[in-house]
Lab assay of single mutants.
Amino acid sequence: MDVFMKGLSKAKEGVVAAAEKTKQGVAEAAGKTKEGVLYVGSKTKEGVVHGVATVAEKTKEQVTNVGGAVVTGVTAVAQKTVEGAGSIAAATGFVKKDQLGKNEEGAPQEGILEDMPVDPDNEAYEMPSEEGYQDYEPEA
């Protein structure tokens, strides 16, 4: 019985440690998101679009440190934060509304985080759909 109880105690310690790591990862992701939003706020009209992409990228980098179902929630929060940063930029006159959601080359930025393969159960990952990809044929 002692062996059984000791095993359960060790398992509990492992769960607590994993929860603490997840909590730490979420806190880091939130900190990076805040950094990115402050970065966007300090940019001029020309830099705002690039700044919004930076927020998304920093958040995406930190999301990889967070495991399990938390990833889905962090990704949703990050996307809403990026959308909010863009709205703030438009409201303050840093950028025109028609410039939001495009990178410096004018290509749409939507789907940055949505296409990231995420499995809350950590069982399997699927690649994003290939609808947006084109076949590449090298020139002879």
Rank of each mutant, 00 (worst) to 15 (best):
A56I: 14
E28F: 09
T72R: 08
E61I: 06
G41Q: 07
V118R: 12
N65Q: 09
E61T: 04
A56P: 01
A17V: 12
E110A: 08
T81F: 14
K23Q: 08
Q79R: 08
M116I: 06
D2K: 02
V63A: 04
E139S: 11
K80W: 13
S87N: 12
V74G: 02
Y125V: 13
A69D: 03
D115P: 04
A18E: 00
V26S: 01
V37I: 07
V66W: 14
A17E: 06
E46N: 12
A76S: 06
E13T: 05
V49K: 13
M1S: 00
A76D: 03
P117R: 04
E104F: 13
Q62P: 02
T54R: 15
A53I: 12
D121N: 08
V74P: 01
K34L: 07
V63K: 01
E130I: 05
G101T: 07
D119T: 10
V40L: 13
A19R: 02
K12I: 03
E130N: 11
V82S: 04
G25S: 14
V48T: 02
E105P: 03
V82R: 04
Y39H: 05
E137Q: 06
G51A: 12
E28R: 08
P117Y: 04
S9L: 11
V48P: 00
V77E: 02
A11F: 12
G86C: 13
F4W: 04
Q62W: 05
E130A: 05
K97L: 09
T81K: 02
E13Y: 11
A29E: 00
K34N: 01
Y39E: 02
G7T: 10
E137V: 05
K10N: 04
A85H: 03
G47M: 07
Y133D: 15
V37D: 00
A91I: 06
E61N: 05
E28Y: 04
A89V: 13
D135W: 06
L8W: 14
L38R: 15
G41C: 11
G73Q: 12
L113Y: 09
V66T: 03
K23N: 01
E114G: 10
K32C: 02
D121I: 07
K10A: 10
E137M: 05
K96W: 15
Q134R: 12
A17T: 10
E130P: 10
E20T: 05
H50F: 13
T22D: 00
N65L: 07
K34G: 02
G106P: 11
K23H: 07
P120I: 08
E105N: 10
A89S: 05
E137I: 03
K6G: 01
K32L: 15
T64G: 06
T72I: 11
H50D: 06
T72E: 15
F4M: 02
D121S: 10
G31E: 07
D135K: 05
S42T: 06
K32Y: 11
K58D: 01
A19H: 05
V3M: 07
T92I: 04
A85E: 02
V118M: 11
V15N: 00
N65R: 11
E57T: 06
A29W: 15
K45D: 00
V63W: 15
P120Q: 13
H50I: 04
P120R: 10
D98L: 10
D115Q: 08
T64D: 05
M127R: 05
E131M: 03
E130W: 09
M1T: 00
V82C: 06
D115L: 05
K21A: 13
A69E: 02
D119L: 09
V77F: 14
G93Y: 07
K80C: 07
K6D: 03
E114M: 03
G68H: 12
V26I: 15
G67I: 10
E130Y: 07
G68D: 14
G111Y: 12
T92E: 04
V55C: 06
T54C: 15
K97D: 14
L113G: 13
A11M: 14
K34E: 00
D121K: 12
E83M: 09
T33S: 08
K10H: 04
V77A: 09
S9C: 09
E130Q: 11
A27R: 08
G101K: 10
V71T: 03
T59I: 06
Y133W: 11
T92S: 05
A17G: 03
E131W: 06
M127N: 09
E110P: 11
P138F: 07
F94H: 04
K10S: 05
E61K: 07
S9P: 00
K102D: 13
T22Q: 00
P108S: 10
G132I: 11
V63G: 02
V82G: 03
G7M: 07
E57D: 06
G86Y: 13
E83C: 03
L113A: 13
A89I: 12
K32F: 09
T54Y: 15
E35P: 01
K21D: 00
T59G: 06
D2F: 15
A19W: 14
T72C: 08
E20F: 11
I88Y: 13
L113H: 08
